[in-house]
Every structure is written in C-alpha cells, then in structure tokens.
C-alpha cells in the first residue's frame, strides 16, 4: 500500500502531529510504502524545521497565507486527483479531523475519523475506532479508495522523527500565494474563480488569537481532576489551590469545562487533553467513558467519590469512598507536614 501523510505546518503543534502520525505509521504501516508528507506552512522561516521533522524521506511543502481549510482542500483536490495514493493519513487534531472526510468526499474515497488501529485486507482497509461515546470499540471496513483517515488522539505513542544525516530529503515546494501558479494549478475547468482567494471569498475579515499558554497537562506526571460532583466554580478554584499544594496540575471533566468553571485548556477526555501521568487523582468524577479515555494511560488512578457504585471506582486502581474535600484537605496536611519534617522530595 502507498500512503501519504498530511500535516499542518502552520500550527505550533506541528511536531506533535508529526510524531503522532510517525508512531502510528511505525505501529501499523510497516509494510506500506510512504509516498510523501504534504506539509502546509505559512512562513519560510520554519521550513528547515518542518523538513527535518517530516516523517517521510519525500516532503511536499505548500506555502499559504494561513491555515484555511477551503484553500487546503482545493489544493489537495487538484494535486492529488491523479495520484495513486491509497491512504491519506491525518493527525487527530482539529485540522486533521476536518480535512480527512472532506478530502475523501472530493476524491471519491472513504473516510473515518478518530481511528486507533488499522490493518490491510484485500481490497479494503480495516479500521478500529471508539463509538458509543467511547464505551464500545467498532471495526469498520473501508472499501473506496483513497482511504482518508484521521487518528484518535493519544491512541499510539508518539515516535520522534529519526535523524538520518546521510539520507538527503527529497523536498518539493509550492507557493499558493504565487498568483500565477495558483491560477494554473488550482483552476477548475470552466471555473473562473480559480485563485485561492476565491476559495475563501466568504471570509471578509480574519483575526487569530493565540491560545493561552499550554496547561502542561499533556506531559504532567501528577494530576488532580475535578468532576461534575464539585458542583460550583468556587470548589474548582479551591481544587486548583489544592493541586498546587500537592504539586499536581489541575484538570477537569467536560461538564466542569462546559459550565465555564475552568478554562478549556484544562479539559481532559476525548474532546480535550489525553493525559498520561504517573499519578492521577480524580475528585467527584463519575467516570464517563469519554472522560476516562483521557486518563486511561495513567500509571496509577486514585478515585475519590462518595458513590461506591460510580463507574470511576471500578476503573481506578485505588478508591476512597468519601467526601473529596475532606480527604484532600487531610492529604494536603499530611504532605505539608512531611515537607516540614524535611522530606524535600515532595
């Protein structure tokens, strides 16, 4: 099988995208031939970094003014129309999830989002993904080529791109901002609206506000998670303080984030961050599967909940059935006393 990787080099998350897809390809595409990596980017300044971290020896750089799905799709549609690539692989981020099904539609292929495992069978690609809000794992057979899939966040371990000094990378470049080129390459037969600007003529004004600093949850070793059972913002604020006293990062479940009791960059679960700490303490979390997927790679899960029947109890290593506030207050006191006694490792 021949596969092509598509990455968004306009985003600061480029490296994590590349390593995510590289890990997936190493796990499931050993027998497949990597055709190329297509990287959309916005500035020449980052080119050496993008090329160095391209997961494949062959890289196609496409420069555009900014990440804009309509332009990217139109470009891919034109460039790949005659390609014999069987599989397009997208990362599991927002960009990958929106581009993959739309590209499949335009190329007459089939698509699946949030895929966590694949295998090749004759005339089909077998894909696995979570369904029923992460309570069930489904197997699908994709039959129409090209297959366009985006990955499930955190489903495979990221794999750094190997640096091979003696291998010269094959790099080709396209500049979408170049009007002459785009008029030629992006033109549809009989379509006068050929320039990339026309592909996003619906946009009258554009502003980008950079994300607030990363919460550090993705790489945190120790996290404390507030669930719906905390019931109010003041309690989440208190848990933020407790997390600091414990030396942990605070995360929250979806109901807490959707109630705006904590910023979205604290959201853990399939619609947020997939954490993989050594220690995860959950406070008043019920344990919905879509949330649990975000902590399931934790080495040790400790659940504190008043309800012994809550799903999180069975899905944890250790559980305390009690009021989370009382237990955590005591735990802070114990740890503070230990620090005072000179246990500086805490």
């Amino acid at each position: 099988m021949k596969h092509t990787i598509v990455l968004n080099g306009c985003s600061e998350t480029f490296l994590s995208q590349a390593e995510e897809v590289n890990g997936f390809a190493a796990a499931y595409l050993k027998d497949s031939r990597a055709d190329k990596t297509i990287i959309f980017h916005c500035t020449d300044r980052h080119k050496p970094f993008l090329i160095a971290n391209s997961p494949t020896p062959s890289t196609q750089l496409i420069r555009l003014p900014r990440y804009q799905p309509e332009i990217i799709l139109r470009t891919l549609e034109q460039l790949e129309a005659s390609s014999n690539t069987e599989l397009y692989l997208f990362p599991g981020d927002f960009a990958g999830s929106e581009l993959s099904p739309r590209l499949a539609y335009r190329l007459g292929g089939s698509s699946l989002i949030a895929v966590n495992k694949i295998s090749r069978t004759e005339n089909a690609l077998t894909c696995h993904k979570a369904v029923y809000s992460n309570y069930m794992q489904a197997e699908f057979k994709l039959s129409e080529r090209p297959y366009c899939i985006s990955l499930a966040k955190g489903s495979t371990d990221p794999l750094p791109i190997a640096v091979e000094n003696d291998v010269e990378k094959d790099v080709s470049e396209i500049d979408i901002a170049n009007q002459e080129w785009s008029n030629t390459v992006l033109s549809f037969k009989g379509d006068q609206k050929s320039e990339p600007e026309k592909a996003c003529a619906h946009i009258v004004d554009y502003e980008f506000v950079k994300k607030e600093a990363a919460s550090g949850l993705e790489n945190a070793n120790y996290i404390l998670v507030a669930g719906r059972g905390v019931k109010m913002k003041e309690k989440v604020d208190k848990l933020h303080t407790i997390a600091g006293q414990l030396g942990a990062e605070l995360g929250v479940s979806r109901p807490v984030a959707m109630s705006a009791w904590a910023p979205l960059n604290k959201l853990i679960g399939v619609s947020g961050i997939m954490a993989k700490p050594q220690i995860c303490i959950t406070a008043a979390v019920s344990g919905a599967a879509a949330f649990y997927t975000g902590i399931e790679k934790s080495k040790l899960i400790i659940a504190i909940n008043t309800d012994r029947g809550a799903p999180i109890i069975r899905a944890s290593d250790l559980a305390i059935v009690d009021d989370y506030e009382k237990v955590l207050d005591e735990l802070v006191q114990i740890i503070t006393e230990a620090q005072c006694k000179g246990d500086t490792s805490l």
Binding site: A104, G109, S110, S111, L112, T126, C127, A130, V131, N134, Y135, M136, Q137, A138, E139, F140, K141, L142, S143, E144, G287, A289, Y292, E296, I301, P311, I313, R314, A315, S316, D317, L318, A319
Partner: peptide
C-alpha cells in the same frame, strides 16, 4: 464507503 464489521465493549476495569 465503509461498513461496520465488529463491535465490542471497551474494558475500563482496573483493580478498584
């Protein structure tokens, strides 16, 4: 372009 061919529960159990 795709058909479901399998479905099974995801096991979230730990020691508890």
């Amino acid at each position: 372009g795709h058909n479901i061919t399998g479905l099974k529960p995801i096991n979230h159990k730990r020691q508890g």
